[in-house]
């Protein structure tokens, strides 16, 4: 047997490579180099904790001026009276504005209240929230379930349901106003079928239903997207295991899909509640709060009390907005609590 011969591996000459990333990043490195020296000096003086404060300061300043300060000013306004704009010209009234808001013989009968428009708005907002959130979640869930299936042109349908979210609320209000007004698209479509033109938005019940419906149409895509993401995060093999176990589709939904979607569903419910309580722009453009006060919601009441009514009552509007803010704080805390719970579940 002959022994195998060994040839040493050839070493080819390597062509030097251009490192493009270093060329592209050169200006960035240059600027960072300029900032490097002063930052080092600052860190020497302020320490690491001080540096954190230094970097946070711009954001905190903006947050302070545009969020924190208005809240404090609003709180102060709610304790003043009169129609003057500047605080220095307003008189301190303590909790009078709150007392005025809560001055009612029966909270279930707005007309028995001193500030009946406030309680009408609270009642309308309550029913709006109940109806809108319930139907919104229901439709979003059904849409997400359908869009999660193997559909023809699935991406197209997903886009179709999401597009209204991209529209400005004013545009949403206008589009539906053009559809629902007396000379609108709906009457135009119904007329050839023998229906007389109807002033839909002058009908109290229909106007309220339209406010709920339009709001659902405008926001459903967003919640559908969250639920769709939740559905897609459920491992496919759980459904296959259920299929092998002979589970019926309804039981799969109630026993597997719904429990596993619950964290997303809770987030969606709280987010929808927060947004529903704040309802204003699209409904204001659509109905202007009417007919009468049938679609007058809390935000519109605050806006009209503070800026439209004569004389303007900024104190009362501020008190109402503080109360609404409290409701939103509670809802936000619930949402944060749910988020934290989900996070902990994820860690386990």
């Amino acid at each position: 047997m002959s022994s195998p011969s060994h040839t040493p591996p050839r070493t080819g000459q390597l062509k030097p490579k251009t490192d493009w990333s270093s060329v592209v990043l050169a200006p960035v490195h240059f600027i960072m180099g300029l900032a490097d020296r002063p930052l080092r000096l600052l860190q020497k003086r302020a320490g690491i904790g001080g540096m954190a404060a230094f970097f946070l300061a711009p954001n905190m300043l903006i947050f302070g001026v545009f969020v924190l300060l208005p809240i404090i000013i609003n709180l102060i306004y709610s304790m003043t009276g009169g129609s003057a704009l500047f605080l220095s010209e307003r008189s301190f009234v303590g909790t009078d504005q709150y007392a005025k808001l809560f001055d009612c013989k029966s909270y279930l009968d707005p007309m028995s209240c001193q500030e009946d428009a406030f309680w009408t708005a609270v009642g309308n907002t309550f029913w709006f929230v109940v109806l809108q959130v319930t139907l919104l979640i229901l439709f979003s869930l059904i849409t997400a379930l359908i869009l999660n299936r193997e559909l023809m042109a699935r991406s197209f349908w997903r886009a179709v349901f999401f597009f209204p979210v991209l529209l400005s609320p004013v545009v949403v209000g206008l589009i539906w106003k053009w559809i629902l007004q007396r000379q609108g698209l709906l009457n135009f479509a119904l007329y050839p079928m023998g229906f007389e033109p109807y002033t839909w938005l002058s009908d109290r019940t229909f106007a309220f239903a339209a406010a709920v419906g339009v709001s659902i149409w405008a926001h459903m895509g967003f919640y559908t997207l969250i639920l769709l993401a939740g559905l897609q995060a459920i491992p496919k093999d759980l459904y296959e295991a259920a299929e092998m176990d002979g589970t019926k589709p309804a039981r799969i939904f109630w026993r597997i899909t719904l429990p596993l979607l619950m964290p997303n569903l809770l987030v969606v419910v709280v987010l929808a509640l927060i947004r529903a309580v704040q309802v204003f722009d699209e409904v204001f453009v659509l109905t202007g709060g009417g007919p009468g006060t049938s679609t007058l919601f809390l935000t519109q009441y605050i806006y009209e009390t503070g800026f439209v009514s004569q004389p303007r009552n900024a104190g009362l509007a501020a008190a109402a907005s503080i109360l609404m803010g409290l409701v939103l704080v509670v809802l936000t805390l619930v949402q944060l609590g749910i988020g934290r719970k989900n996070e902990n579940k994820g860690k386990r």
């Binding site: 093999d237 759980l238 296959e240 299929e243 092998m244 176990d245 589970t247 026993r255 596993l260």
Partner: peptide
């Protein structure tokens, strides 16, 4: 159908229902 073939499958990822206890997982089918 898969359910009527009388077969049982053990999945690579185990495919256990995460929101159910072991007992509920075993009883589900």
């Amino acid at each position: 159908s898969a359910a009527d073939r009388g077969l049982a499958m053990v999945f690579q990822s185990y495919a256990l229902y995460p929101h159910m206890t072991v007992r509920q997982n075993l009883a589900f089918g």
